[in-house]
Amino acid sequence: MSKVIVVTSGKGGVGKTTTSASFSSGLALRGNKTVVIDFDVGLRNLDLIMGCERRVVYDIINVINGEVTLKQALIKDKNCDNLYILPASQTRDKDALNLEGVERILNELKESFDCIVCDSPAGIESGAFTAMYFADEALVVTNPEVSSVRDSDRILGILAAKSKRAVDGLDPVKEHLLITRYDPKRVEAGEMLSVTDIQEILRIPLIGVIPESESVLQASNAGTPAIHLDKSDVAEAYRDVVGRFMGDERLPMRFVTVEKKSFLKRLLGGR
């Protein structure tokens, strides 16, 4: 049974596309046939993060309009065998997406993929709505600051009231909280909301905490999803998220407390 997973947040710049790229790569690495769809029509970014921008010929709007087949528009990922990317259009706007067209594409993808990851645009307008409407599960990406938490709260309200599952009276969309750009040091200093503060407000199960890291920016610029960065905290954290998503609930929550530096590390001046 294939799953449609939306990566959403309400607020922009919190790490939706970074998460979509790493999460879908992680699913593919674990052997799931995965496709990741960029719903940010007009502000196409996912192809840059995945490093396939030069291979984009056709996009989701071409498929919706019936100009090309789905097979022609799908791009195979360079790092994972099981992963395909369906890019957004850069020259159109969000109105070019329509629910019927998206549903047709999703149904066709469900025939050959296990996981369909939808990278939602920011906001709560038609683009974000279309991305979440058909979701079975949702990764709600939140930064540890009040405006991001409030926007996530808004998105959760919309998921619970207006998604297809809600409208059809099926089981509700399964919600997962993913906290990104988390800095335990700043939490201890009282400058950032803690995991507990965020959970107290949003009250949905936590699937992972991604630490703030410089390597994310480097990975984005290099067109490699952060999960492929060997030995980085971010890659480990995303692997944990994928593990928990696949049902491994025993994984301990890492990167939520300040790491005590060993004597040797301090002596060598490592960061």
Binding site: R150, R154, L156, G157, I158, A160
Partner: peptide
Amino acid sequence: NKPVRTGQ
């Protein structure tokens, strides 16, 4: 019996 979220 559910959370009432911002905007609702």
